[in-house]
């Protein structure tokens, strides 16, 4: 535990330093892309616990994000609604009206999303594969439709005026936390139990691992951090609408995972960075050659080529480590490479 606090303190200090550096010297547009990468990392790493480790194909991540975003906004933003009796708009002052309320609001958003995760997890326990994907997709749609019909939080028009509390520091502070927790989770008895369920559910149950408990745990864990990411995104964009969290957002996160290698946390991080930064990088190329739309073609091409030549993703299920890097250098054979049989 002492070591964990040490890592956390050092990482947060580094993040604070980087935040200051970016704010002072780097172009705001680049900072924006970096922040979006951070949010994508939180999403991909948290979804990796559900989809990658536990093998439960979920397409509901955007739904959890939406819950986190709207619940945290509820606490930080002045809401306006039309009062019929007075025939005018009435404003509700936010509960947390200072910057200090941001993290509590995010956490409340995360908890709300985690509760939703349990609510989705329990009834869908019996579903596997495609059926689970469809059920979670349905959940995401239900969330956006409910928000669309909820006038106090802006309905279909979206909710404007979220305070700009998100910055590089807060986003990457949560990146550090989610990466650290997920790494610790993966390398614990719970991580092994999740992988056991993915590899062979019947054998896991016979070993006394309760698949239903572990699956609900994975959903709660993933949903919590998706909720946090939603809150961070909301306070970065400052305007949220149901369309921000449509099912394409869920698909996007799944694609990040698949690109990096389903089941690999470092793969998820790389996938998140590549798929967030790539369209932005291609934007420059696009304007140079003057061919609008080429960006999305290239983006799709990257995915198609990957699926042809490396269907298991960049890292497969392996984690990026110094040992692996050493093995990639030609002419060097790592001593403890397996497969001696």
């Amino acid at each position: 535990m002492g070591r964990m606090i040490g890592i956390l303190v050092v990482s947060l200090a580094v993040v604070l330093g980087v935040n200051w550096f970016l704010d002072s010297y780097i172009d705001q547009y680049v900072v924006r892309v970096i922040n979006m990468c951070g949010i994508s990392i939180i999403l991909a790493v948290s979804l990796n616990v559900i989809n990658g480790l536990c093998g439960q194909f979920s397409l509901g991540h955007a739904g959890f994000m939406a819950i986190g975003a709207y619940v945290s906004a509820w606490f930080t933003t002045t809401l306006r609604y039309f009062d019929e009796a007075q025939a005018k708009y009435v404003a509700i002052e936010p509960m947390f009206s200072s910057q200090w309320g941001f993290v509590p609001a995010l956490i409340v958003g995360g908890i709300a999303a985690a509760i939703a995760g349990a609510v989705v997890g329990i009834p869908t326990l019996r579903l596997k594969g495609d059926y689970l994907a469809i059920a979670t997709l349905g959940f995401g749609e239900i969330v956006t439709i409910m928000i669309t019909n909820f006038e106090t939080i802006g309905g279909a028009n979206g909710l404007p005026g979220l305070p700009a509390y998100s910055n590089t520091f807060w986003i990457f502070a949560f990146v550090v936390i989610v990466v650290m927790f997920s790494w610790y989770l993966q390398r614990s008895t719970f991580g092994r139990a999740l992988i056991a369920i993915r590899e062979n559910e019947l054998a896991a149950e016979v070993m006394g691992i309760s698949a239903s408990r572990m699956k609900v745990m994975a959903f709660i864990y993933g949903a919590f951090f998706a909720g946090i990411a939603g809150g961070l995104l909301g306070h970065l964009l400052q305007t949220i609408s149901p369309a921000t969290f449509n099912f394409m957002k869920s698909i996007e996160v799944v694609v990040m995972l698949v690109l990096g290698g389903l089941g690999s946390m470092t793969g998820a991080i790389v996938g998140a960075i590549v798929l967030t930064a790539l369209p932005e990088a291609l934007r420059d190329v696009e304007s140079e050659i003057g061919l609008v739309g080429v960006r999305m073609v290239a983006y799709a091409l990257v995915l198609i080529l990957l699926m042809i030549f490396r269907p298991q993703g960049i890292f497969g299920q392996k984690e990026l480590s110094l040992k692996l890097l050493g093995r990639l250098i030609p002419g060097r054979k790592s001593g403890n490479a397996g497969g001696e049989e």
Binding site: N200, A204, M207, G263
Partner: peptide
């Protein structure tokens, strides 16, 4: 029915999971 992606040691360790008293 082994857990193919886990190591040999980790496979055996999953058997001991049910007696663990720790929480997440």
């Amino acid at each position: 029915r082994l857990f193919d992606e886990l190591s040999v040691l980790e496979n055996a360790m999953t058997g001991a999971h049910q007696h663990s008293k720790i929480n997440l």
